[in-house]
Design a binder for these strands. Structure first.
Lengths: 337, 337
DNA sequence: CTGAAAGCGCTTACAG
DNA sequence: CTGAAAGCGCTTACAG
């Protein structure tokens, strides 16, 4: 393996000078620089990362801490879009993203993170908020370790986090339907344990109230993630004496079930019923008419998370707690243009 | 930051001894070991990874080289299931998986990989076969660098690789349909540029030939990935004077389109027409009847890739070129039980 | 603008 | 079973 000493020797300079050329630091005369670069090129040299890490006390690496179990990418590709965004941003800035699998047998996630942090394998960590506990928080604060949670931690915390604003998304959905002339708005969601759904419901109700819109009990439907259930649920809704003319579907499976029900009821979309969903994925491409959707760009959420973390690594005094990714309307054919 | 010297001092031993305890190497008396472990615990010590990497000339890290662009996880969650499998296997063995994003602006993927390999950030590399070029091969061979391609390289190569056997999968599909009494088999696929589809077509034809089954031209349909096209295509097929009684759909979108067409044609599934697809994802959960599918466990392909690479890292004399992941039949309702 | 030298925090033959 | 010491390949004040 060729080392910095080989380069120095061949170029007739000191290793210090080679280092300066490598890192583009301090003044090096153009001639010297050229000479060194030429030798590096000729000998096919790349500086040893471990040695550089040790000397500069930084690994140019960031961890992404989560469980990575079988099938997860099918159940939640969104999470990997975030990872792609993070990787994109980091690689642009000369950093690398390393996965920290919290799924290890016999070891608690907190312990795994603690070891990783203390061993300085990385300069910072991005963690799924599901693994943000008071204990982890204490660790981060004690070491003043750069970190950011994906999602708001489930407890009162001064850790940094970034999240999508589901309440705001629901607001947007309601405003869109109202702007398109809908007046009787219903919401079809998942189960009450579903935190994201409940936030969207909150946003939905808040927006309705702001617009002095009464929402009858029957206009709020909870469902198991089964398209048959959803179909029944929406069919019932459409059979009401005063049926809704605008339906907020909290994901694309619900949109799929709702469209089936609307079709069965022989109602025109969007003339008689307008529909809007939140999640474009995965069923949207299959649906007719093409659903109008509130979309959240999770790749760019990842980019933002990476960007924040790098800033924090460079400037330890930076102290920001939250970022919020903004939702965006994609107008298609289930609401009036 | 607490270092190995602090531990040594507190425990009243040398750093060499602490190192032996950390790495569970060489004989250390039980008493000494306990004492050292106690101090490590008390001081909340974790060995500095960079220093250890440098000293032992190994980073306990493996790279996964690919592009990680926006939306990729929706288009290809399978790839991330592989990554999860790799991560699972590596973390079990004390290794970490680091993403090497080949998408960097202005730099060629080959150059990015070369730098990463030469800098010894990792002890081995897993790369998408799309980025396996003769130049990359030369690098791996020259350095004798542990590597494995995901997918067979597109050129004659002695690199190591692992792949799913699409030809074999298609064989399985045909055998299944024949065993269920189908005699007129059609295949609905993507476009001719689609390498995976073409391999499946090859397997389909080979299996047909082996079973002395003639496949009329009209029984082979190419389609753009648009459910309308597929619907038309299958409708045409079912309108043939001699219509097929078994249809191989090369992915779940095609299965979705085919089921629509079969329904429209008022044919009974699986009595009059049986259908089988390859990809359970993402549309299967939406479909009725539930599709019978040939499934490939990509998580376990990832596990195998990781496992192979670790063995190769430990034993440089190991020289295996290929692994193949085996497909598996999931019997559901679109073929006879 | 350049270089000598110390130091980063470990591991590893080797000697005892 | 334990430790002194060299060494891994860089970076970084500091002196010149």
């Amino acid at each position: 393996m060729v080392t910095i000493r080989d380069i120095a020797a061949q170029a007739g300079v000191s290793t210090a000078t080679v280092s300066k050329v490598i890192n583009d630091k301090q003044y090096v005369s153009p001639q010297t620089r050229e000479k060194v670069l030429a030798v590096m090129e000729r000998l096919n040299y790349a500086p040893n990362a471990s040695a550089a890490n040790l000397a500069r006390r930084s690994s140019k690496t960031v961890l992404y801490a989560d469980r990575f179990y079988k099938g997860l990418p099918y159940a939640n590709p969104h999470m990997f879009d975030i990872i792609c965004g993070v990787s994109h941003e980091l690689s642009r800035k000369g950093y690398r993203l390393s996965l920290l699998n919290l799924d290890a047998a016999g070891k608690k996630p907190e312990k795994i993170m603690e070891e990783a942090v203390l061993s300085r394998v990385a300069d910072g960590i991005i963690l799924n908020c599901a693994f943000a506990t008071p204990q982890t928080e204490k660790l981060m604060l004690r070491l003043d370790y750069p970190h950011i949670c994906i999602g708001e931690p489930g407890f009162t915390s001064i850790m940094s986090w970034i999240d999508t604003n589901h309440t705001l998304s629901a607001n947007l959905a309601v405003e869109h339907l109202l702007a398109r002339g809908c007046r009787r708005l219903a919401i079809i969601g998942g189960q009450k344990q579903d935190k994201i759904f409940m936030e969207r419901l909150r946003g939905f109700l808040a927006a309705a109230e702001k617009n002095s819109l009464a929402i009858p009990e029957a206009y709020i439907a909870y469902n198991r993630p089964d398209i048959r259930d959803i179909f029944r649920s929406v069919t019932e809704l459409l059979g009401l004496p005063e049926r809704p003319d605008g339906i907020v579907c909290t994901n694309s499976l619900i949109m799929a079930g709702a469209l089936q029900a609307v079709k069965k009821a022989d109602l025109k979309v969007p003339e008689e019923v307008s529909l809007i969903a939140f999640d474009d994925y995965p069923y949207s491409p299959l649906l007719y008419p093409h659903p109008t959707v509130i979309d959240i760009d999770l790749f760019s959420l990842g980019v933002q998370a990476g960007n924040f973390l790098l800033k924090r690594i460079k400037d330890p005094t930076m102290l920001i707690q939250t970022y919020t990714a903004l939702p965006r309307l994609i107008q298609r054919d289930t609401t009036r243009a």
